[in-house]
Design a binder for these strands. Structure first.
Length: 484
RNA sequence: GGCGAAGUGGCCGAGUGGUUAGGCAGAGGUCUGCAAAACCUUCUACAGCGGUUCGAGUCCGCUCUUCGCCUCCA
């Protein structure tokens, strides 16, 4: 079966074929680095991480670009207001460069926790000012942009398809009666800034043919996408709230400049809500990832995100996270059990699960269904292992490999954090093994003597220390409990 | 007002015409010294009203409600 992707541009699922066979170019709008990442970032970047992982799994060579916005994103999209980075610098009494560096590092720390793989290229807007200026020059030349008082604006009337992504195509109708339009130097109220002249005291500014100033927010994505991926790319991803105006502006300025389609597949992920209300900075209900990670395992957050579809809203609550924690632990248990199990004789029919998993992922990255398949598989594996015939070595290996591929490599929800590598860790874990063996030996003695209060005490205290003991038919097993 | 999405069982969350989604929680059972884990069985659904159809959470219309964008936001 082939991969189908929901294309926001046609509002339908379309069969995906890359422009150049075997190679996929994908650009995802990155964060504006003026604050710590929140759960919304987690949903977005985990979702696209899985998109990239699945494409790679299918054998494509994926070139993944995700920008860092460190200039030009104003606190108001009507081309007024303050630069977000500058504002934060003012609030923190430091300079913009330190702000963007600090929060970029913070962003990657959190993404690493979530096992979000780094993009191949992570270009910063401030490092691509010449490219952005060149694009503006090109747009002036094609007659799509004009200069007023050192500012450069894109003329939406010069690009009749403006608004085709969001469905806002009648600019005059949109403008009439919304707000009292202040006298503006723009030719049309919907025109957007490509280059802004820096005001007195503005720190982030560069020389340009028009003024000492800075680029408009929408410009960076077009310039960097074209630079690293070409004038037409396969996939452009981002949050739904950026459809308009951000992505419509990108389309306008890119296609006006090149005369070619800018993006073949637009993918938009939905929002995170808290108690049914959108999470937003202004609402002061955003869930900071660093705070969240203190309370729960980042991998649970990843699992929680993937349990809903990327185009659905995801409602955050403590009880939902708790349910995910327990659910994920179930999969981990099977995963561990499969690894430690003694070899039996029965064959296991893996194929149907593999097929269902593939179908789910090929159907617009339906991770909730893919995860449901893993739960069904988990149940089947446990049932098989409970039987006296057990599972043959070949079957055990096959199922193990599949869980490794599906759960670990693709979804990234069954990882190997428990068996952290590194010499020190290995040494420590060897010592831990030894210590626990001693305790288990003492407990076994107690149980032989029917001294159950003592054996239960050992078990309870180990559990309190994060080590869980289970008495199985195969003997006593133990595992390191993840954080709740 | 314009553009768009959605209303599924106690909670989360899939499902675009006909067979059990799945997870969590609940109930009963098997196993166990007891637990834990696992397995088996099981109870709660498709906002409302019409329509199309042999048959509709699933298509159409209307009503109600919620959410997103149009202002910062992944």
């Amino acid at each position: 079966m082939s991969l189908f992707i929901y294309n926001s541009l046609g509002r339908a699922k379309e069969k995906f074929e890359p422009l150049y066979p075997g190679i996929v170019s994908i650009y995802v709008c990155g964060p504006t680095v003026y604050g710590h990442a929140h759960l919304g970032h987690a949903k977005s970047y985990v979702s696209f991480d899985v998109v990239v992982r699945w494409l790679r799994h299918k054998g494509y060579h994926v070139k993944y670009v995700q920008n860092i916005t460190d200039v030009g994103h104003l606190t108001d999209d009507a081309d007024e207001g303050e630069d977000k980075i500058s504002k934060q610098a003012r609030l923190e009494k430091t300079d913009p460069m330190e702000i963007s560096q600090f929060y970029t590092r913070s962003f990657y720390e959190d993404m690493d926790q979530l096992d979000v793989l780094r993009a191949n290229i992570a270009p910063a807007a401030t490092a691509h000012i010449p490219e952005q200026i060149a694009l503006v020059e090109r747009l002036i030349k094609t007659g799509n942009a004009y200069v007023v008082n050192g500012n450069v604006y894109f003329s939406v009337e010069s690009f009749p398809e403006y608004g085709k992504l969001s469905g806002r195509t009648d600019q005059d109708a949109l403008q009439s009666g919304i707000r009292v339009e202040m006298r503006s130097e723009k030719r049309h109220p919907s025109d957007f800034a490509l280059w802004k002249k820096a005001e007195e005291g503005h720190l982030m500014k560069w020389n340009s043919p028009w003024s000492v100033g800075y680029p408009g927010w929408h410009l960076e994505c077009s310039a960097m996408s074209m630079k690293y991926l070409g004038e037409t790319i396969d996939i452009h991803g981002g949050g739904m709230e950026n459809k308009f105006p951000h992505h419509d502006c990108e389309i306008a300025q890119s296609e006006a400049a090149t005369g070619k389609p800018y993006v073949r597949f637009w993918m938009h992920n939905n929002m995170v809500t808290v108690n049914g209300i959108k999470m937003g900075k202004s609402l002061k209900n955003s869930v900071n990832l660093k705070d969240l990670f203190k309370e729960c395992d980042p991998q649970v957050i990843r699992f929680f995100v993937l349990q809903s579809h990327y185009r659905s809203q995801l409602d955050f609550s403590v009880s939902a996270i708790k349910a995910s924690t327990t659910g994920l632990e179930k999969l981990r248990e099977t995963w561990r059990r499969l690894r430690d199990q003694k070899i039996g004789s029965a064959e296991f029919a893996l194929e149907p699960f593999l097929q269902r998993f593939t179908d789910a992922m090929d159907d617009d990255f339906n991770t909730p269904v893919a995860i449901a398949v893993l739960f069904d598989l988990s149940k089947a594996i446990n049932a098989a292992l409970d039987r006296s015939e057990g599972m043959s070595e070949k079957s055990r290996q096959e199922t193990h490999d599949f869980l490794q591929a599906a759960g670990s490599d693709i979804l990234g929800i069954l990882n190997h954090h428990e068996e952290s590598s590194g010499r020190d860790n290995q040494l420590m874990s060897k010592r831990l093994d030894g210590v626990i063996e001693i305790l288990l030996g003492l407990r076994a003695e107690a149980r032989n003597n029917k001294d159950f209060p003592l054996s239960d005490k050992i078990r309870d205290r180990l559990l309190a220390a994060g080590i869980e003991i289970k008495d199985t038919k195969e003997g006593v097993s133990w595992s390191v409990k993840s954080r709740a």
